[in-house]
Design a protein around this nucleic acid. Structure first.
Lengths: 104, 104
DNA sequence: AGGCTTTCTCTAGAATGTCTAGAGAAATGC
DNA sequence: GCATTTCTCTAGACATTCTAGAGAAAGCCT
């Protein structure tokens, strides 16, 4: 995992709709074609952090499999934060790309 | 800074030629158009780490400004490592990009 | 009924890498 | 003689991720 990107990825995934933690990891793994795998010891602290910051909100509900799970959704603040983090990612990833393209 | 990319950036910069630590930070800042700034408290531990791993080698020499500095250069092992890290970066950055493009 | 697998949440502690905030030293210019 | 520039280096704090677990409830199988 690229350190520092997990928060952004979670926020982005939640633009696809309300989702519980386990579902978020599934989605990230699926869309990234198994390149990105979030282990639970990283996910839950991240979710806690994001909720603490007011970027996501949670509520317990039943899943399709009839189990209780905490469903997360993006808040308005979270959307703004996502925009900020996307911009920052573009800037940084772009700069890294320029370095990698650097030639003598 | 994107955590985990510093080693790769340093290795890549050294493909441009032998350089001392301070010069490396200058180059990174210059090529990235000031987007990437390496502070010294990150750089020197990184250089130590890279030399420890055998990816770079160092020797003291005089600079253009007539000062003593430690000049670093890429080793053969370092070139291989750089190739590995570049691949990994492409994979990861690509996957992050796919997530960011994900739509409902 | 009992046991197994799947789905789901959660936590403590270690490991890693970066940042903050310094110190220090030598060369040059004023 | 003093300030600035160039350059190296370190200790300790900090944030995030990883390792390595525990736990619980639903559904399936025998």
């Amino acid at each position: 995992m690229l350190q520092g990107t997990l928060d952004m990825l979670v926020l982005q995934i939640l633009t696809l709709g309300r989702m519980h933690g386990w579902g978020i990891t599934q989605r990230i793994e699926q869309i990234s074609e198994s390149v990105l795998r979030v282990n639970q010891g990283s996910l839950y602290p991240a979710l806690y952090r994001l909720e603490e910051a007011g970027w996501i909100a949670s509520e317990w509900d039943a899943t399709e499999n009839n189990r209780q799970a905490k469903f997360y959704s993006l808040t308005a603040k979270g959307k703004k934060q996502l925009a900020t983090e996307r911009e920052s990612w573009e800037r940084l990833a772009g700069a890294v790309g320029r370095i990698l393209d650097a030639e003598v």
